[in-house]
Design a protein around this nucleic acid. Sequence first.
RNA 1: AAACCUAUAGUGUAGAGGUAGCACACAAGAUUUUGAUUCUUGGAGUCCGGGUUCAAAUCCUGGUGGGUUUACCA
Length: 558
Amino acid sequence: MEEKEPLNFIEHIIEDDLKASYTKDDLQFRFPPEPNGYLHIGHASSICLNFGLGLRYNAPVNLRFDDTNPAKEEQEFVDAIKKDITWLGYKWANECYASDYFQQLYDWAVQFIKEGKAYVDSQTSILIAEQKGTPNEPGVESPFRNRPVEESLQLFEEMKNGDAGEGSHVLRAKIDMTSSNMLMRDPVMYRVLHKAHHRTGTDWKIFPMYDWTHGESDYIEQVSHSFCTLEFLPHRELYDWFLDQVHESDKLRPKQREFARRNLSHTVVSKRKLARLVEEGVVTGWDDPRMPTISGLRRRGYTPDAIKNFADSIGVGKRENLIDVSHLEYNVREDLNKKADRVMAVLNPLKVVITNYPEGEEEWLEAENNPGDEAAGNREVPFSREIYIEQDDFKEEANRKFFRLKLGGEVRLKNAYIIKAEKAIKDDAGNIVEVHCTYDTDSKSGSGSEASLRKVKGTLHWVSVKHALPVEVRLYDRLFTEASPDTHKDKDFMEFINPNSLELITGYAEPSLANLKPEDTVQFQRLGYFTVDKDSSEEKIVFNRTVTLRDSWAKLDA
RNA sequence: AAACCUAUAGUGUAGAGGUAGCACACAAGAUUUUGAUUCUUGGAGUCCGGGUUCAAAUCCUGGUGGGUUUACCA
């Protein structure tokens, strides 16, 4: 009980509030996406943070769509977002929409006008921007700033009724044009937009701005802690100002706190940039397995646990960061190592003929599905005179560090026999096209015979030629060659696209794989984790490589 | 340029005045019918300068580096 587990700064804030005036029942959080795109790994961190807090403190977490801009938002994204959060395994307390609060927000705004806290400005956006000044120079007040309350009221009504054109007027809060915080220089609260909203249709012709909406939505829902990323820090002053105007003392007053966005190396995490990858055809869509979107990661074979463990392990702070993608990869491997069945598939086949194995004969050998998990059971794999091994697993000559097959040398075929390479057959160009081997007839795996227990250094995976199931395999690599492609001042991130982020090959798999369904994940032994893609059909299974196995040999070799 | 935020091993993150920990990455070794997994071990850090204090990663101050803000987007 007294055991102190380390807290991140967000948890410290909550613990401090709990020691002060908050009770546990006051705690409530929210995840507030704008439905204008797909969720990505950065959102996943935020989701895990907010929903994780909800679990930790047994507090409700609302899913709230920040849908105040009908020009960008669509139902399609609402559905995709809900699907992704559910897939991650989180349950929201309430499904909320900022658009549900349009009437309340409007009523408050009218009140503001009556109290002289807001006015209708009839200038162009360009003029308003000019008058805003710069961080160094104060802004100048709009000529409409002190227009009569009745006039503002009347114009606001016209804006609302659709009698005013887009851009003709805005409603502005009357705060301080000389504030050192640009956001306090009479920020826009409403603009006119004659566009259909995905939920309210054409009921509203005016739409509230983010700053005016977000804090009040938190207040309406009685969210205790509203966590957002650091770029909203300057907005906090305005968040508080708006809240000051509407807050009633018997109600909880939400507080906004900010954390640093978490960046992942070798990718980009911005909706705009991800959209460009889609639009320019660099990837096939938002759920392309190379995309850092949740739907992309899912298709790539990532599990919810892998993503959640990743998010938890990187923590949360307030400084600029770049998390190496190897950390993400570690988390999938760790999770899949426990869950994925081990199978055999050969990606770059080299035919091996076992010359002393009877022609036409075959046998089915027992194989463990997961050595770390007895409950995973066993299966049988067919063995015969002709098999495929990986091209990389054979060399005519090699030093003793090469644990694989070489002429005159022996290796164990996983779950099968020990073989010895006798002869390499080459084509006219000198390429090895086939290897002739002999097998030790007494060395069958699991037979318990003396020969079966012999220690041979190398073990290879293999597939019987006759029984091989041809499969399409998509080998994915990182999308960018640069760790931080979008922080170069003089270069566009598109210049760093990895031309080899996808390699398409045909592999040969053991027949048991014919039964797999999309999103099933297996380990191709000695190669990596692979998941069945939704592009699979009756005729052809498609596998996506989630991640390779750790490979210390590859490092030595390189 | 101004205001604000920020600075702990290569990366990320703990440490709230009292022996600088953890994870990944890296290196070495053991085990291994996956060069995987597992296990053991190792190297590696408080941005710089002042101050307060018996004692500073921690508090103060000045630099320096990085970031954010200057949308009728969120």
